[in-house]
Amino acid sequence: MKIRPTLAAASALSVSALTAVTLLGAAPAYATEYSSALKIRGVQYDAPGPDDNRCSGGNTAQEYVTIKNYSASATINLKGYVVKDATGNTFTFTASHSLQPGDYVRLRGGHGTDSDAKNVVYRDNCNFLWNNSGDTIYLYKPSGSHADTHAYTKSANDRDGNGYIGFHS
Rank of each mutant, 00 (worst) to 15 (best):
residue 4 R to L: 14
residue 8 A to V: 12
residue 8 A to Q: 13
residue 9 A to V: 04
residue 9 A to I: 00
residue 16 S to N: 12
residue 18 L to K: 15
residue 19 T to K: 15
residue 25 G to L: 03
residue 26 A to S: 12
residue 29 A to F: 09
residue 30 Y to K: 13
residue 34 Y to K: 12
residue 34 Y to M: 09
residue 36 S to R: 09
residue 38 L to N: 07
residue 40 I to C: 05
residue 41 R to E: 11
residue 43 V to A: 14
residue 47 A to D: 02
residue 48 P to C: 13
residue 48 P to F: 13
residue 49 G to N: 12
residue 51 D to H: 10
residue 56 S to W: 04
residue 60 T to M: 06
residue 74 A to L: 14
residue 75 T to R: 13
residue 76 I to L: 11
residue 77 N to Y: 04
residue 77 N to K: 11
residue 77 N to P: 04
residue 77 N to V: 08
residue 78 L to T: 11
residue 78 L to P: 07
residue 79 K to P: 08
residue 80 G to D: 05
residue 81 Y to L: 06
residue 83 V to S: 04
residue 84 K to R: 15
residue 86 A to D: 10
residue 89 N to Y: 13
residue 96 S to Y: 03
residue 97 H to D: 10
residue 98 S to E: 12
residue 98 S to L: 11
residue 99 L to V: 08
residue 100 Q to N: 13
residue 101 P to C: 09
residue 101 P to D: 09
residue 101 P to F: 11
residue 104 Y to N: 07
residue 105 V to S: 01
residue 105 V to F: 00
residue 106 R to M: 13
residue 107 L to W: 09
residue 108 R to W: 00
residue 108 R to V: 01
residue 112 G to V: 07
residue 114 D to I: 10
residue 115 S to P: 05
residue 116 D to C: 05
residue 116 D to T: 14
residue 117 A to P: 00
residue 118 K to Q: 15
residue 118 K to S: 15
residue 119 N to C: 03
residue 121 V to K: 02
residue 122 Y to I: 08
residue 123 R to D: 01
residue 123 R to W: 00
residue 123 R to S: 07
residue 124 D to M: 08
residue 126 C to G: 10
residue 127 N to T: 13
residue 127 N to C: 01
residue 128 F to N: 06
residue 128 F to T: 04
residue 130 W to K: 06
residue 130 W to A: 02
residue 130 W to H: 05
residue 134 G to C: 09
residue 135 D to F: 10
residue 136 T to E: 05
residue 136 T to W: 05
residue 137 I to N: 03
residue 138 Y to V: 03
residue 138 Y to E: 04
residue 138 Y to L: 14
residue 140 Y to N: 04
residue 142 P to C: 11
residue 152 Y to L: 03
residue 154 K to W: 01
residue 154 K to N: 14
residue 155 S to I: 08
residue 159 R to F: 11
residue 160 D to K: 11
residue 160 D to V: 12
residue 162 N to S: 10
residue 162 N to F: 04
residue 168 H to G: 00
residue 169 S to M: 10
residue 169 S to Y: 09
